[in-house]
């Protein structure tokens, strides 16, 4: 869960291509794990992106439970496919705090917001020509900017608008309570 009192997310990026589907993010055979059970939440984290083809470098190093990365940079249509909320949850449980993609599949985007698991930012340009896996980057949450540490280049992100306070509050339920929409 994120928090607006930490307005900067910083860390290594992991770079992905177009059409990364939910089976690549968390393969279906692991959907026997229930995200609300803490031990299984951690297992989902250890399995994040385990469905990627072999060309990609290991997202999680052998023997590790979490990734060394904080930010995923991706192409178009990130998270297409199934409605499994396990997908944003697995990424968050692995240590990812934000994704910067050129576009998202609708349900993945919505799940990222509803769970408050991570910030689903949209880039205005193709960032994959600048960022390489392992590069350091930082995201200024309030200003909605992404900085590439090595080159110093700064990229404006599309505004998350009404969605940012929902993620920042910790997701749909926390936000709905804060706004008095539910009183449970």
């Amino acid at each position: 869960m994120q928090n607006d009192t930490t307005p900067i997310l910083a860390g290594k990026v992991y770079v992905l291509g177009d059409d990364i589907d939910t089976d690549q993010i968390i393969p279906a055979r692991h959907l026997n794990l229930v995200p609300t059970i803490p031990a299984e939440y951690r297992q989902l984290g250890a399995l994040a992106l385990s469905g990627l083809p072999a060309e990609y470098p290991a997202f999680i190093k052998p023997g590790k439970k979490r990734a060394d990365y904080k930010i995923v940079i991706a192409g178009r249509n990130f998270g297409c496919g199934s409605s499994r909320e396990h997908a944003p949850i697995a990424l968050a449980a692995s240590g990812i705090q934000a994704i910067v993609a050129e576009s998202y599949a609708r349900i993945f985007f919505r799940n990222a917001v509803a769970t408050g698991a991570l910030f689903p930012f949209e880039a205005e340009t193709n960032l994959r020509t600048v960022f390489q896996t392992g590069d350091e980057a930082e995201i200024q949450l309030e200003r909605e900017k992404l900085r590439h540490s090595k080159s110093g280049q700064v990229f404006k992100l599309k505004s998350l608008g009404a969605v940012r306070p929902v993620v920042a509050a910790g997701g749909l339920f926390a936000y709905a309570r804060k706004m008095g929409m539910i009183n449970h």
Partner: peptide, 24 residues
């Protein structure tokens, strides 16, 4: 389930959602 959109075949509005939305 993302294939909930199947049910539009009978003239319903049907869409797939995640667990958090479904719990809501």
């Amino acid at each position: 389930d993302s294939h909930t959109c199947t049910h539009g075949a009978l003239g319903a509005f049907a869409t797939g959602i995640g667990n958090t939305d479904a719990a809501f």
